[in-house]
């Protein structure tokens, strides 16, 4: 660990610190939601370690709880995580000539918040060690913070009464994620179409309605974006 790695680490940590506060309620809710879905303490902590993704965990819990088919659980998680393909593609130039083990670790650690604060500055820097420090320090901090507060939620869930509908907190958490998304009009349309179509198509076999709904939502957003940009071009 040389001087520029340490300097990058300090700057990355400082940039991420204010944003990291938002992880706390999110992690607590994930912990409680896993327990109120019916997972044991061991299962909940195991899921949190190997998955390490709030949205994918909260999004698949209702499916796990209802005993949905495995493929649907996997496809749902994949769709929720497709944004990471874009983040990963955007960040890739910053990881050039980085050893493959560090790149694997970085992939596991990649979360929305660190991407949001770091992508631009990492891509602008020509110092590889600084970039790695700037990425790894806040990412590892986010991982620790996440694990600690999910554990608090998992262990604290037993102290909470069973009949409080606490699993609805998972839905609220997903709703708060929709808020920044819904500020752009094509995004809002994608969400509305995806959500309404899923409700309308709920009788489809094998819960295909949800997958069809998501595809319709993506298509609606994409088409709306093209119309919008055509309108601006005029």
């Amino acid at each position: 660990m040389n001087e520029s790695f340490r300097r990058g680490a300090r700057e990355g940590f400082r940039a991420f610190l204010p944003l990291s506060v938002g992880l706390v309620p999110w992690a607590l809710v994930t912990g409680v939601a896993m327990r109120s879905t019916g997972l044991s303490v061991l299962e909940a902590l195991g899921m949190n370690l190997i998955v390490f993704a709030g949205t994918a965990q909260l999004g698949t819990l209702p499916l796990i709880g209802a005993g949905a088919p495995l493929w649907l659980i996997a496809v749902t998680a994949l769709v929720l995580n497709l944004r990471f393909v874009i983040f990963s593609a955007a960040l890739a130039p910053a990881f050039e000539r980085v050893p493959v083990l560090q790149r694997l670790l970085s992939g596991y650690l990649l979360v929305d918040g660190v991407f949001a604060i770091g992508a631009e500055r990492m891509l602008a820097s020509t110092d590889r060690d600084w970039r790695m420090g700037f990425f790894l320090a806040p990412s590892i901090y986010a991982w620790v913070l996440w694990q600690v507060f999910v554990m608090c939620g998992v262990l604290g869930a037993d102290a909470l009464p069973r009949d409080w509908s606490l699993e609805f907190m998972a839905t609220i958490a997903l709703i708060t994620l929709l808020v920044p998304i819904a500020r752009a009009r094509p995004m809002m349309l994608a969400a509305l179409v995806g959500g309404v179509a899923t409700v309308v198509l709920r009788e489809m076999p094998l819960r295909l309605g949800m997958i069809v709904g998501i595809v319709l939502g993506i298509a609606a957003g994409f088409v709306a974006e093209r119309w919008q940009s055509r309108g601006e071009g005029r």
């Binding site: 949205t55 999004g59 209702p62 749902t76 769709v79 929720l80 497709l82 944004r83 393909v85 874009i86 839905t171 997903l174 709703i175 994620l177 929709l178 998304i181 819904a182 094509p186 995004m187 809002m188 994608a190 969400a191 509305l192 179409v193 995806g194 959500g195 309404v196 179509a197 899923t198 409700v199 709920r202 949800m210 709904g213 998501i214 595809v215 319709l216 939502g217 993506i218 298509a219 609606a220 957003g221 994409f222």
Partner: peptide
């Protein structure tokens, strides 16, 4: 197109 996947999927989970 992929940028719209999370919005559509989140709503597909939340609406029902």
């Amino acid at each position: 197109a992929l940028r719209y996947a999370p919005a559509a999927a989140l709503a597909a989970l939340v609406f029902p």
